[in-house]
Design a protein around this nucleic acid. Structure first.
Lengths: 387, 387
DNA sequence: CTTATTACGCAACACCGTTGCTATACGCTG
DNA sequence: CAGCGTATAGCAACGGTGTTGCGTAATAAG
């Protein structure tokens, strides 16, 4: 099951690096890619030839830039691949169609009935996919990403206990949806999906970031060291259940003085300023621990008061973090607005196939102890991790 | 400057995977490595041959396990490489000599004068290296790792403002020490070094972890997704300055109700139980946000009361984390005891050379925009990242 | 027209892990 | 003790990666 570092990895990695550069440039040439990736120009030619053959990239004329032979210019073909993303919230289903560059081409939003069942969600998803997929030629649809409230298990694709949804305990949603839709499906926590989307658009500078989402609860999607961080049980990001007032009011989680409780109480009584300042305390706590460079504030309950939240959090980041000159963190709202989660889920799907691999996994638990060797012969012909 | 994914990367990566498996096994054979790494047995033979040539590995007889030709058995040569680690605390300098397996061979501890200067530290380091290095043959010493209180800049090797040390502002310690000692030097925050060491010993299961260190302040070393996480400005881990009581007593950092302040006050009045419970609140906060699978409690102020702290934290982790059955986190004290930081710094040095590479970096800031291409020709012959 | 410059791309190359196959060493069987 | 089945080691050829060397093409400048 372990993926070794072989030539396939090399090829995929370099292909993905080129796509990554191409994705954020309208057009590009060989020298640009070469200096950006560290590959030799000749290697870039080979990579680009592969990508052209796959239809992901196409020639786009030449550029004269003074003396010398003009450089061949290429561009990513946006409509060569599509992905659909779905944001499953407690009462609404938002779905988007995204192209290979991450551009959102179409959005549909619909209500979900209270306490909707898995079957009902599948119906809605299928209907949405039908409407959105019609717009793109078949075979070019990479898959469907689903961003949903947790707790859920990303690795297994199972919803453990969706917060405040009765019918969602240990539901193998990824498998169910894949079968129903006939497409690859990725299941992720809403906040994780969102931060993937934001990172996909923001580029390599966006290495360490948190997406704070205030929407029936407060969660944080973490993007650490250039990839999504989900934690040991893929349940990282329960940011709202950070205690900031040890003797505070009780929270549904059983503890006292959770950020979420304090925040929601303030917001419920219309005190946006206090709510924002409470959130800011949590954000500064997060910065102290994680030293992220970017904080993105999102969520249906926050965005209507975005200005107030931005100001409160920015002020706190500037004044309450020691050596804030050095430890500067950029605080913004999502580039994708209300579509963050859905679009992020779509980009997560694209990222799976066309993004940079996380790297071959180190030797896994396959052998706890090397000392006492294989009892059973096992199959020495290790399955190749197919692309 | 960007490191592309080339054949060198492949080789180094697979060499490191084999070393990683070998490091934790007294002896190993080809089949074991093959199944643990996913490489074919033949590839393992080539890798092992390289490692034998480098002196890192040596044959260790054969093993008969019934029918068939006996398997060739190898073992890592512990004394083929050494590293020295130093833990620079506010009043003491602790240095260790570690071999390639991570075994601590020797420890020396000495006092540091109040408000010691960089020059004084260099003297002490040089003396310590002299005493420790004498025990190992020259040329086999990989380098010196330094774990120190922050804030400091790991990437640049510069101490920004060592906490409560007057002479330590923007001191380029890595460069100074490298010149003085004539050896490669790595500078890291104490907690980061510590968690690297713990991870180096614990193996691949130890993928997401936090080392909480209580020692004139409270910090957290983070090991996320199988590698050290240091943050956007390499200053992650200021765990003690998480506010857990918004109206609490003021902290030196300027905020109110920091974990560290509440904890230290309790400890100062001898109330270990309360101190431990305060720390536990922070640990659960951390678990909610990061979902790490392992928590290591360390530090000179904690270890004397280890039992009390372990119990308080374990209880909190078991009872205050929702779905604690699923989100189990193991709480321990460091396998290396009081040597964690120093030994971890040494292993960080070993990890640099013989550990798994983090993976080739994605296209860096080299080109912000690919659209408008190179102004200057630049040197296309990218320097190869030498091993 | 000639020259310098810049970029492209074929072909040969070095080196990686993989595959096919043979040689070797053992337990077992008769 | 010879023959067989089995498990392992390792040589040799292979496919495929990025790299290097070098000839070719296209442009501006003289």
């Amino acid at each position: 099951m372990v993926k070794p570092a072989d030539l396939d990895f090399l090829r995929d990695y370099n292909d993905a690096s080129v796509v990554a550069v191409a994705r954020r440039a309208r057009v590009f040439d060989r020298a640009t890619i070469a200096s950006a990736t560290g590959l030799t120009p000749q290697a870039v030619s080979k990579v680009v030839a592969r990508l052209v053959a796959a239809g992901l990239v196409e020639p786009d004329g030449v550029r004269r830039q003074g003396v010398g032979k003009p450089a061949s210019v290429y561009r990513l073909v946006p409509n060569s691949r599509y992905a659909i993303g779905a944001h499953v919230a407690r009462r609404t289903l938002r779905m988007v169609l995204s192209d290979l560059t991450g551009q959102v081409l179409n959005t549909i939003v619909g209500p979900l009935p209270p306490d909707f069942t898995p079957e009902r969600l599948l119906d809605e998803l299928a209907a949405g996919v039908g409407r959105l997929a019609g717009e793109c030629r078949a075979g070019r649809l990479v898959g469907v990403g689903i961003g949903m409230v947790g707790p859920l298990d990303h690795a297994q694709g199972v919803v453990r206990d969706a917060h405040r949804l009765r019918h969602w305990h240990d539901v193998p949603l990824r498998e169910m949806a894949a079968e129903r839709l006939g497409l690859p499906v990725m299941l992720d926590k809403d906040v994780a999906a969102g931060v993937v989307g934001e990172a996909w658009l923001r580029g390599p500078h966006f290495r360490d970031a948190a997406l704070i989402m205030v929407e029936s609860g407060i969660g944080a999607g973490l993007w650490l060291g250039g990839s999504a961080y989900r934690g040991a049980h893929t349940n990282a990001g329960e940011f709202g259940h950070m205690v900031v007032q040890t003797d505070g009011p009780p929270c549904v989680c059983g503890r006292r003085g959770c950020l979420e409780t304090l925040h929601d109480r303030a917001l419920a009584r219309g005190d946006v300023g206090t709510a924002a300042r409470v959130l800011a305390v949590g954000v500064v706590n997060l910065l102290q621990t994680l030293d992220v460079g970017h904080v993105v504030l999102a969520g249906a309950d926050l965005l209507p008061h975005a200005a107030a939240y931005l100001e409160a959090v920015r002020t706190a980041v500037r004044t309450e973090v020691p050596r804030a000159d050095w430890l500067a963190a950029e605080v913004t709202t999502p580039a994708l607005g209300v579509d963050v989660i859905a679009a992020g889920a779509a980009m997560g799907m694209l990222n799976e196939r066309y993004g940079l691999p996380t790297g071959p996994r180190p030797a896994e638990a396959a052998k706890e102890r090397a000392e006492e060797p294989a009892e059973e012969p096992g199959d020495p012909a290790a399955a190749r991790a197919g692309g």
